[in-house]
Amino acid sequence: MSMGPGNYIEVGRMDELSRMDSPLHRLDARAKGLTTLIFLIAVMSFGRYEVSALMPLFVYPFALTAWGNLPAGFLLRKVALAAPFALFVGIFNPFLDRETLSWIGSHPVSGGWLSFASILLRFALTVSAGLILLACTGIHRLCAGAAQLGLPRVFVVQLLFLYRYFFVIGEEGLRMVRSVEMRGSRSLGLRTYGSLIGHLLLRSIDRAQRIYRAMISRGFDGEVRVLRADAPGWKDAAFVAGWSAFFIAARVCNLSELVGNVVFNIL
């Protein structure tokens, strides 16, 4: 049985990171979201066999990690933990696609290996960009930004409720699982599972009703209002413009090869 207490703690850790303070954290949520989006599209639009041209894009996650004072090791571990599905699908490429597409010296490189390497690089880039976006912005500001951009309020509000009450219900679940574990059972049979999860569900339903009661007793009328709104400034605009220019440059010409050629010419 594994209620990853790990998972529960991980959410808390990301939550903490997003509450730190750094110039990166202070940027507007929409600016960071938009930049991330452009980055993702740039990465994903590369051809299937592209490897070297993806390299320059690592500047983005590395620079942001440093700039936002984020723990690189922690993020790296999270990227590695998320890898299974991409690995699972990508690992077949070297076996299925054996056409030689390139030569390193006299050694043939098959398309499969190229595309596999490409999948892994894309994966590292996209996942780290997503994690960094969250770690330097936080779910609340992301949601507020998304709402300002027109995401339906109902969706945003219930997502924030989900997040808030994950810390309550997740802990309840963790406690229940621990108490079962403490009674010596190492794996959760279907019966125990059913009643444990069933009780958790009933308690969740009851809690939702109490929360609703608490809301209406403070004048809730179907609309959740929040004070304060981020106003983007020139720094935010510069952030988006600067990085987007870099992404486009990296997408249009293979910077790696450019750099490689320059180095070889000098040598």
Binding site: Q158, F161, F166, I169, G173, L200, I205, I211, M215
Partner: peptide, 23 residues
Amino acid sequence: DRMVPMMGVLGAFVFTAMMINFS
């Protein structure tokens, strides 16, 4: 109006339940 808190809390429940495995 009751829907919003119910959705949020049940979302938290599902999210929690996804982490609890049974054999």
